[in-house]
Write a protein that binds this DNA or RNA. Structure first.
Lengths: 213, 213
DNA sequence: TTTATTTTCAAACAAACGTTTGATACAATC
DNA sequence: GATTGTATCAAACGTTTGTTTGAAAATAAA
C-alpha cells in the first residue's frame, strides 16, 4: 500500500526531477537541455528519467503547465473596466510571467523558446496555450477597434502586441550584449509594460482611423 | 600558376559549399545545421568543409555578409525626406530582407535565429550588424521624438519596432500553425510594413506627448 | 523472516555529431 | 614522362546525445 501521509522516496525523485527539468528546460530550451544536467541538478541517477517518465520528451510534456497563463486570460476578462484597461492589465501580467525570474511561472519562457525552435510537442503547445491567448488578445483588440478593420489587419495588431512583449525574452542574448546593465526587476517590468501598453493603444487608435477615414 | 580566367574545380566546390551553407544555416540555424546535409546539398565530400574552411564554425563565419543590411542603413539615411518617412522606408526594406524568401539576403534570417540561440560567433554578429542597425533606428527615433524622452524610453521604442518586425520571422513555426494560409509574398510584406510603420509612428507620437504633458 | 515488488545505480548501448586520416586522383611544374 | 603540390574520397575517430541493461539496494507484502 502506498503511504499517502508521507511522501515516498520514489515520489521525491519524481518531484525533484520535475523541478530540475523546469529550470533546465526554461534556461536551455528542449533540445539544448540534456538529461544528464537535469539529473545532476535533481541529484538522481541518469536512468531515473526513463524509469519515471519513459523519455525526455514525456518529461518535457509533464513539466508543461499552462494554467497560470490561461488563468491570466480569464482573470483579465472579468471586471467591468474598459477593454483598453483590460489590455493594459494583460500586457503587464503577461510580461511578469514572461520576464520575472523570481516568478514561479517558467511556462511562459518555455513558449518563448518554442516559438523559434520547434520541438516535437510544439503542436500541443500551440493548440493548448498559444492559440487561446492569441484569440483572447484578438477579442480584446476587436473590442477596442470596433468592426472597421479586416481580419488580416486585426491579426497584424495582435502580432504587434505579442512581438513587442516576446522580444525582451527572445532577443535576450542580444539585448544582454547591447545593454549589459539592463535587468528585468519589478521596476523595469512595470516600465516596459507601461511603454508597450501606451505604444500599442496609440497604434490601435491610428489603425482604426486609417481604415475608416 | 592558378588559372584566373576559368574557375578552378577547387573554387567550384568552395562556392557550392558557401551557397549550400547559406541555405542550410538560414533554414536550421547554426547548431541544427549539419555538415553532412550541407555537403549533400553541395554534392561534395564530407571532408570538404574542413579542408576548405577548417571547421563548421569558420564556414558559418564565411557565409556571413552584413553588407546589404548596413547598406540599407546608409541608403535610408540619404535623401532629404523627413525622419518619419525614412523610418517607414527602413521598416519596409528591413522586412523585405527578413521575410522575402526569394531575396538573396539570407543574412537577416541568420540574425533572427541568432537572437534566440546564441552561437559561438554571436558576439561578432552583434558588434558588426545588430548594434549598428539598432543605433541607426535609435537615431531615427531620436530625430522623431526630439529630446524630451529618456535614453531608457528611447531604447524601449527601438525594441518595440524591432520586436514587431522580427516576430514574423522568429515566431514562424507558431504563426504557420495559427494561420496556415499566411504567406510572405510581396503583397503581404508591403501590408505588414505599412501596418508596423503606422502603428509605430502613432506609438512614438503618444510616447512623446506622455513624457512632456 | 521470507518472499515479492519497486526503485536505484554504474555501466554500456546505439545513433548522430564534427573532425581526422591515409590512400587515391588530379593538376601543374620541371 | 617524372615529380611535386593540391584536391577528393570512403572510412574511421572521438564525443556527446538519449536510452537500455542487469544487478544491487530498498521497500512492501506474505
Amino acid at each position: 500500500m502506498i503511504t499517502e501521509t508521507k511522501v515516498s522516496l520514489s515520489e521525491q525523485t519524481r518531484e525533484r526531477l520535475l523541478a530540475a527539468a523546469r529550470v533546465v528546460f526554461s534556461e536551455n530550451g528542449f533540445q539544448n537541455a540534456t538529461v544528464r544536467e537535469i539529473c545532476r541538478r535533481a541529484e538522481v541517477n541518469i536512468a531515473a528519467i526513463n524509469y519515471h517518465f519513459s523519455s525526455k520528451e514525456a518529461l518535457f510534456v509533464a513539466t508543461l503547465n499552462f494554467e497560470p497563463l490561461l488563468a491570466l486570460c480569464e482573470k483579465t476578462n472579468q471586471g467591468s473596466i474598459s477593454a483598453q484597461e483590460r489590455l493594459l492589465d494583460f500586457i503587464h501580467e503577461f510580461l511578469r510571467q514572461l520576464l520575472d525570474e523570481k516568478e514561479f511561472s517558467v511556462q511562459c519562457q518555455f513558449m518563448a523558446r518554442e516559438l523559434a525552435e520547434p520541438s516535437p510537442v510544439l503542436a500541443k503547445i500551440v493548440q493548448e496555450a498559444i492559440a487561446p491567448i492569441h484569440q483572447f488578445v484578438a477579442n480584446l483588440v476587436r473590442e477596442i477597434v470596433g468592426k472597421k478593420i479586416s481580419e488580416e489587419e486585426l491579426r497584424r495588431c495582435v502580432f504587434s502586441i505579442f512581438g513587442q512583449c516576446v522580444y525582451y525574452r527572445h532577443a535576450q542574448p542580444v539585448i544582454q550584449r547591447l545593454h549589459p546593465k539592463l535587468r528585468y526587476d519589478q521596476r523595469e517590468i512595470e516600465a516596459i509594460a507601461k511603454h508597450i501598453g501606451e505604444f500599442s493603444l496609440a497604434g490601435l487608435k491610428q489603425i482604426t482611423q486609417n481604415q475608416c477615414p
